[in-house]
Amino acid sequence: MTQLEFAALAWGGSLAAGFLGSLSGLGGGVVIVPMLVLGLHVDVHYAIGASLISVIGTSAGAQAAHRQEGFSNTRLGLFLEIATTLGAICGAFLSASTPTKWIAILFGGVLLYSASSSMGSRKQDTTGRAPDALAAKLRLVGSYPHEGKLLPYSARRVPLGFGLMFGAGTLSGLLGIGSGAVKVLVLDGAMQIPFKVSTATSNFMIGVTAVASAGVYLRRGYINPAVAMPVTIGVLLGSLLGARVLQTARVRPMRIIFAIVIALLGAEMIFNGLTGKLS
């Protein structure tokens, strides 16, 4: 395969990954790594490095659109990034001493979990309640547009959410993903943030988390511009398109398709890790 053919395939796959990742809030990283490793036979560490760079692009593209529409809560995201950034740095250092096959198996497990969460039913948004004392003190509140009016909301169970975000950041640094599935679940489930706000805020947070991990991978020489450039450009364009479509499209069918794809990729990653094909 020539370099041009590789770049074209990586760009096309990344475009689709960024689009679907932006729609679901899971981030395109869950597709980028297995696509590069299984489809284009890139070493898993270089695939993770490219994925981290692309996650930064995903976040920047999606954040611009979500912020304009009034869904992303930047203050809440930055507060929780204290935990995820610390976790991301820990995960990035752990990756150097973790065998490739175990990274593949763990990554496959995260993919299967993400697929299950993506297809699971979501609770109705609960808004207008009095904020928790800690959330009010930290001003972790906001409002989002819905049917022509602004609905207020407040974060709940802040200490629990903060602790869970450290785990999400560790996954990001270890596996080269934005761990958007975990972030959305923490925001939507544990902290009871409305789902569209959770999705938009997660897309913002995954980029900040990835920056912390990417520095470690760059220092170790695991970021190859020939791999990272087409992936980042594709994901950036896809995330911009996905963020625009999210406002009006029916997300449920896209979520189901995305869940099926990452479940198949997750099963293949686990199989290849167990059989030693990625060792």
Rank of each mutant, 00 (worst) to 15 (best):
M1S: 14
Q3I: 15
F6Y: 15
F6A: 15
F6L: 15
L9I: 15
F19S: 04
L20Y: 08
G21P: 11
S24E: 08
G25D: 12
L26F: 10
L26V: 10
G27L: 09
G27T: 06
V31P: 02
V31K: 03
I32Y: 00
V33P: 02
I48Y: 07
A50S: 10
S54M: 10
S59K: 14
A60Y: 09
R67F: 13
R67K: 15
F71C: 14
T74N: 12
T74H: 15
R75D: 12
L76E: 11
G77L: 14
I82C: 11
A83Q: 13
T84K: 08
T85W: 08
L86S: 13
L86P: 11
L86R: 13
G87M: 13
I89H: 11
I89C: 07
A92H: 12
A92V: 15
A92Q: 12
F93I: 14
P99A: 15
W102K: 15
L106C: 15
L106P: 11
G108V: 08
V110D: 00
A115Y: 11
S118A: 09
S118F: 11
M119S: 14
G120C: 13
S121G: 11
K123C: 12
T126G: 05
G128E: 09
A130G: 04
P131L: 08
P131Y: 05
L134W: 09
A135R: 12
R139I: 05
L140K: 11
V141Y: 06
V141H: 07
G142H: 09
Y144F: 09
H146S: 04
H146I: 06
P152E: 01
Y153F: 05
S154F: 00
R156N: 01
R157I: 07
L164I: 10
G167V: 07
A168E: 04
A168Y: 04
G169T: 08
S172V: 01
G173D: 00
L175T: 01
I177H: 02
G178E: 06
V182N: 01
V182Q: 04
V184S: 05
L185M: 14
L185C: 09
A190Y: 04
M191Q: 06
Q192M: 05
F195H: 13
V197I: 04
V197M: 01
S198F: 07
T199C: 10
A200P: 04
T201G: 03
T201Q: 03
N203T: 07
F204P: 01
G207K: 05
G207R: 06
S213T: 05
A214T: 03
G215S: 01
Y217S: 03
L218H: 08
I223V: 09
P230Y: 05
T232I: 06
T232D: 02
T232V: 08
I233G: 07
G234N: 05
V235W: 01
V235D: 03
L237P: 04
L237F: 09
S239D: 08
R244H: 10
R244E: 02
R244L: 01
V245C: 00
Q247N: 03
Q247F: 02
T248K: 05
A249S: 05
A249I: 08
R255P: 03
I256A: 04
I256Q: 00
I256E: 04
I257W: 00
V261T: 01
A263D: 06
A263C: 03
L264K: 07
L264S: 07
L264C: 10
A267S: 05
E268K: 10
I270Q: 06
F271R: 15
N272P: 06
N272M: 08
L274E: 06
